[in-house]
């Protein structure tokens, strides 16, 4: 079940739209934040608060790539490998993460520190290769730079 503040937050979001159903996407974001990932329990909570059938909620959530349907590491690396990033070496970075952090696409490090998600274009092609760690852009990546960045996350 969601806590009071989260429920309040949802009710405020709900008022931005003509229908409760429309608040589903933001609501799922909130549930993901509160539960860490989108378990059945998380969807039941969303369904409860918005009065949207739970199967519908899950079906909608399952459509979108940025909703996480299994437990994630403490920090989520979202690395772009689309064409602009690829031709500037994104694949080498994928290998680098595999070799130096034991981090495979879709996987999580044993210590639960990082999860790696391969992204389609994240709109940083001009400064490729690029990635998001949690909510921050990191661009013009190189192996050293990645090491430098990841050092800051525990």
């Amino acid at each position: 079940m969601l806590n009071e503040t989260a429920i309040k937050e949802l009710q405020e979001i709900r008022n931005k739209y003509p229908s409760a159903r429309s608040a589903l996407l933001p609501a799922i974001y909130v549930a993901q934040r509160e539960f860490g990932w989108l378990s059945e329990e998380a969807y039941e909570a969303v369904s409860e608060v918005l009065g949207v059938p739970k199967a519908i909620a899950r079906g909608v959530g399952a459509f979108y790539a940025m909703y996480k349907h299994r437990p994630m590491g403490r920090n989520i690396i979202q690395l772009c490998t689309n064409v602009s990033c690829m031709i500037l070496g994104a694949e080498k970075l994928v290998d680098y993460l595999k070799n130096h952090y034991g981090l495979v696409p879709g996987g999580t490090t044993e210590d639960g520190r990082f999860s790696l998600v391969i992204m389609e274009c994240i709109g940083a092609c001009g400064t490729a290769p690029a990635m998001l760690v949690n909510d921050e852009f990191y661009e013009n990546l190189s192996e050293q730079y990645i090491e430098e960045i990841l050092a800051k996350f525990t």
Binding site: A55, I56, R58, G59, A62, F63
Partner: peptide
């Protein structure tokens, strides 16, 4: 969803992975 109004199943995932599932 549209006739029975039970909304017990939905399409999960998308594209080539699309499949129909009940909530659980």
């Amino acid at each position: 969803e549209g006739v029975q109004g039970a909304s017990a199943i939905a399409v999960m995932e998308r594209g080539g992975h699309s499949h129909i599932e009940p909530f659980s």
